[in-house]
């Protein structure tokens, strides 16, 4: 247990070094599907924060009671409960948003980011570390979603968060709003993230061994 990362390390790791989208490439389905506008992307990120925090805290609290072969059942049960709460809450107070996000809120249940964090961190470490991990990973997820969504929304509609940022002469590239745009934006952004990473690894001293 001595070599487990501390709460602060977990928090920082989630944001960039182990970003759920750019480094772990987990949970791509909602990333592709709801990143066509900043509003829906940020709602999604909020829902993920709520679910991940809840699931991580509960899993960490009961980590000593877990039976190894039944742990996935318990994780899924916990996640499903929090996802249902998030889904109902959105339907009650943000009805239009909930319709726009459609099935992707309920689908957080099978989002591998959350089950991965339960498995890797929450089922082994204290509540405090698990909560820090959840917040860090969620911020990382939100940043990644924001990067893709802003590219798609700006190029596709000339708007950012629903307000116009490009001159009206901008030819709205409808393809960026449609599913192909998601793949194009994600592919280019992932490629540039890897390129930056490689350049850093080459130029910088190899002080940190890769995990």
């Amino acid at each position: 247990m001595a070599d487990q990362p501390t709460a602060f390390e977990r928090f920082i790791q989630g944001i960039l070094p182990e970003n759920p989208v750019y480094r772990q490439v987990l949970g791509m389905c909602p990333v592709l599907a709801i990143s066509n506008s900043m509003k829906s992307a940020m709602t999604m990120a909020g829902a993920v924060l709520f679910v991940l925090l809840g699931a991580n805290v509960v899993t960490s609290l009961i980590r000593n009671l877990l039976k190894p072969h039944l742990r996935i059942v318990v994780f899924t049960l916990t996640i499903a409960a929090f996802v249902t709460i998030a889904d109902r809450f959105l339907a009650a107070y943000m009805y239009q948003m909930s319709k726009a996000l459609g099935p992707y809120i309920p689908l957080i249940i099978v989002n591998c980011i959350i089950i991965c964090r339960c498995e890797v961190c929450a089922s082994k470490q204290s509540v405090y570390v698990a909560a820090a991990d959840a917040v860090g990973q969620s911020i990382g997820y939100a940043l990644a979603l924001a990067s893709i969504a802003s590219v798609r929304e700006i190029l596709g509609t000339g708007m950012f968060f629903g307000t116009r940022v490009l001159p009206t002469a901008w030819p709205n590239l409808a393809v960026m709003i449609l599913p192909p745009g998601a793949f194009i934006a994600l592919g280019l952004l992932l490629a540039s993230a890897n390129w930056i990473q490689n350049r850093k690894a080459k130029s910088g001293p190899k002080a940190k061994p890769a995990h």
């Binding site: 039976k67 059942v73 916990t78």
Partner: peptide, 19 residues
């Protein structure tokens, strides 16, 4: 083996019913 699952299921079921 499964008591934790059962207890959690009942607990979450109650919480969801309240929601």
């Amino acid at each position: 083996q499964a008591w934790l699952c059962i207890v959690l299921a009942l607990f979450f079921g109650g919480a969801l019913a309240a929601v």
